[in-house]
Amino acid sequence: MNHFPGTWGRPRDDVYGPYDSSYLRSTGPKAHTQSPAVTGTSVIAVKFNGGVAIAADNLASYGSLARFTDVKRLRVFGDAAVVGFSGDVSDMQYIDRLLESMDIRENYSAHGNQLNAKNLHTYLSKVLYKRRSEFNPLWNHILVAGFDGEKKPFLSSADLLGTTFSAPHLATGFGAHLAIPILRRLFPEERPIEEITKEDAIKALKECLKVLWYRDARSLDKYSLAVITQEGIEVQEDQQIEAQSWAFAETIKGYGAQTV
């Protein structure tokens, strides 16, 4: 104890070093978000004959902490599209509100002229690009699934930089590394989409989710899955990854208290 009450109860400089107050600095360049806070991991999606299937687990992580375990990262837009979000959850909520208000605006008049998934993807990529150009990005990587103006299945992605990319199957986050190789093996480039059934697509997504659950430490075995066809959108939330087998874990070496 010393004679400076202001320092009482504070970490001692001689033990912890002087306090770094640089983050309190009020001058200098203005800094926006430098990293996401509460995050969702992979979103994966596959086109099939007559539609698109998309899935994401129900976890929102705070760093390595599994903070929220009932988070719905697939958001339905009207009867036209499903948007899957990975990345920052509060930014996702913001975008969801944007979509909500847009849906209300679109339905002021009930006759025709609905936005389709392609329109929605164009819009979202413009929003993301605008924000990155302001150096204040919305920290998300999104997949938009639905139909385009020609009524053909549509699947495309947009990331926090406003980059867009489109393919018959897509995955964000860890899924880009772990799920894409599986999907490429199941649905090789030369296999036409017309040959892929809805059941094939769903089965493949479930397989990928299982692998992600095994190997992505920020994932969960509870997930949501949406299927978009001309008949409409079916969303199943609170699904459970079934038939798990951790036997493979025995053979994995290189971490923990192993002695090789």
Binding site: N58, A60, D70, V71, R73, Q93, Y94, D96, E100
Partner: peptide, 12 residues
């Protein structure tokens, strides 16, 4: 009359 989800709510 229902207890509404807050716009943008992701879980309960």
């Amino acid at each position: 009359e229902a207890e509404l989800a807050v716009d943008g709510q992701v879980g309960s």
